[in-house]
Structure formats: C-alpha cells, structure tokens
Design a protein around this nucleic acid. Structure first.
Lengths: 103, 103
DNA sequence: CAGTCATTTAGCCATTTGGCTTAATATTGT
DNA sequence: ACAATATTAAGCCAAATGGCTAAATGACTG
C-alpha cells in the first residue's frame, strides 16, 4: 500500500551514484561511452585502459549497480549503454545549492 | 612561461571533489552548512552527527582539501564556509553529457 | 564436439578509508 | 598561571577498494 519506501531508495541511489563517480576510471568510462554514441562493448571499453580487463569489468559492475550503465547481451559480446537519465540525480543534488532559501 | 599546468590541476580537482562527495556524511555537511546560511562552526557541524567529533574533523579536512570548504579562525572557534563555486566543477563535468556531439 | 573468443567470477593482497581513543594545541575566563 | 573550551592531530584497527592472476561461463566456428 504505497508506504513510502522511496526515500531510502533515493538515499541509497545518491550513495551508489556518487560512489561510482568517485573513481577516475569510472568517470572515464562514462565519458567514453557517451562520446562513442552511447554504447560500447565491454571489450572496447576495456581497451581504453592499461589495467587488466578484469579490473574494468569490476568498474562496469559498480557503474551498473549505480544505475549509470545497463547492458545487453549480443551473442558473445556484452553491450554497455549509458543511462544518461541517471546522471540527473547528481544534477538534482546540486540543485539544492541553488534554491536560494533564506539567503 | 605559462606552460599548461592547468590540466593536471583540473584533473586532480575532479578527483578530490568527486572523492569528497562520495561520502554521505560529507554531502550532509555541505547541505547543512548551506541551509544554515553558508557557514557554521566546527562544533555546530559536529553536532549534527552521532559519531565522534574527531571523525567530523576528518571529513571537514577532506572537504577542505577538495576546495569545497574554507575556514577562518574566530577566537577559539573555527568557522567553515561552503565554497559553492567549487561545486560548479561537478556541474561542468556533467555538462559533457549535454554537448550533443554526434548523437 | 573441440577450440577459440568475449567476458565474468572468484579469490588474493596492498592500500585507503573512516570509525575510534588518546593526546596536543590554541584561546578565553578566573 | 590555571582551568575550561573549542578544536585538531596522531595513531590504532576493521572494513572497503581496486589492482592482480587464475578459473569459469557461454556463444560461435570449424
């Protein structure tokens, strides 16, 4: 019966999104996918880094848990897509500092 | 001779700012200071949390290193002030995802 | 089916983080 | 000077993070 579960969900959303953005490699992943048209395979993404593939896989998982990426299987490839909408959560948080309440 | 030292500075800026925002307590500090008119003493800030003061001091240090806070001594108190301008760095980063380059 | 390709999962390990407690410092009031 | 106040600094420790390597999965190819 629609008992507000929303707030906690939201809070955790901030937690996971800000957490995900806290690593340079993950920010880089988002930018790269975006400038590549919005989606890329795991392999293409991994190729932009020097560190081991598996490390990138881990970053992708973090980004996905945060809702910033989704993936879709296409044969033996996995295509990751950026969820631009999810980034708005950051913008929303920043907006608090513009509501010029009482200054 | 103005050899571009700017880029690295900028990159580290993203690193420290996003890093600082990755912890709920630190986001809370910023919001609280902001809604308190932009500045608060260390004690007032510490009072909003259940954990030990010293832990808050640590968070304040992180926020300050990131340029999101500055402080000023006033007798035995330390007044922390939010640097709203610094938050624009986040907005700037997000802006990359609006430049509808090639989509 | 055996082999290769694309990718993830699992598990190890060093480093960082974020609590805590116990000093230390600096400023003010008596 | 002495005690009290406001606050940071230092150092300990458990937990989280982010690398790595080795193994597993799942799809395609001959």
């Amino acid at each position: 019966m629609a008992h507000s579960e929303q707030p906690k969900v939201r809070v955790d959303a901030y937690e996971s999104v800000f957490g995900a953005l806290a690593h340079a490699a993950r920010r880089q992943v988002l930018l790269t996918i975006y400038f590549n048209g919005g989606s890329m395979t795991a392999g293409e993404i991994a190729a932009i880094f020097e560190h081991a593939w598996q490390t990138t896989t881990r970053h992708l998982r973090v980004l996905e848990r945060a809702g910033l990426l989704t993936h879709e299987k296409r044969g033996r490839k996995r295509i990751y897509r950026i969820e631009r909408k999810r980034l708005e959560l950051v913008r929303d948080w920043l907006a608090h500092f513009s509501k010029n309440s009482m200054h």
